[in-house]
């Protein structure tokens, strides 16, 4: 199995320069793939080792209890899972603390900015519907309903404008520019080059620093 034959999925990232030390959330929407922090081969190996340790431990627990499924066996198995998990998380705690990659300003902005705007837009639309509903139920006078709707409308329009700005590639960070350029080049090149691009080195301090020269090259080219 060679790297050219085996398409490897990019590690889930936030698209804002996150590293593989970032905890993964199931809620996180799919973002643009970015170069991963750890070599591909280490992730399956790590999982395999962890799984192996877990299974060996469970087998040992079952063995000392005579392979009888009792409450004690189950509780002890949960305990062993906790031990392995604790070791894993403590390791990640230490490696995250030792990771000297410098976060770009974008990292501090909540990911899914567009999702947040969409959420706010839905919330405002619902609020406007609510006012309309209360008005139809006879609780609000026409004047009051219109006044409140006007306030919400102006807020909703501002949110729509912000969404449009994001979609049309409005003000973006240097990192976003690099991501867009990379995606564009990957789309132009073939699968082999795509695979090669996916195995780009970990985005660390160097990557952030490298983004500066890349951006300035781009600026010079213009």
């Amino acid at each position: 199995m060679t790297s050219s034959e085996t398409p490897i999925e990019p590690a889930p990232t936030g698209g804002n320069g996150t590293s593989a030390t970032e905890p993964v959330s199931a809620v996180e929407p799919a973002a643009a793939p970015a170069p991963t922090a750890a070599p591909r081969a280490q992730i399956p190996l790590g999982l395999a080792v962890t799984g192996g340790v877990l299974i060996v431990g469970w087998l040992f627990i079952a063995f000392i209890h005579g392979f009888h499924l009792t409450v004690a066996t189950v509780v002890l198995s949960i305990g062993w899972l906790a031990v392995v998990s604790a070791a894993y998380f403590v390791l990640r705690t230490a490696t995250a603390a030792a990771d000297d990659a410098v976060a770009v300003d974008d990292w501090w902005r909540p990911t899914g900015a567009r999702d947040e705007l969409e959420r706010e837009k839905k919330s405002l639309l619902k609020a406007m519907k609510e006012i309309d509903f209360d008005h139809e139920m006879g609780k609000m006078s026409d004047a009051d309903a219109q006044e409140l709707l006007r306030v919400y409308r102006s807020r909703a329009l501002a949110v729509l404008k912000a969404i449009d700005a994001l979609d049309s590639g409005g003000p973006r960070s240097v990192q976003d520019e690099i991501d867009r350029e990379l995606r564009a080049r990957m789309a132009l090149s073939g699968p082999a080059k795509k695979t090669k691009a996916k195995r780009a080195p970990k985005r660390g301090a160097g990557a952030d620093a490298a983004s500066e020269p890349a951006a300035s090259e781009k600026e010079n080219a213009r």
Binding site: S19, T21, E22, P23, A82, V83, S85, A86, Y88, F89, V90, R92, T93, A94, A96, A97, A98, D99, D100, A101, V102, A103, W107, W108
Partner: peptide, 17 residues
Amino acid sequence: RRLVLSAVWGLYGFFAL
């Protein structure tokens, strides 16, 4: 960023312990 991520991972480790 590293300290924040370390704290988050540490919280999960705390839960396991």
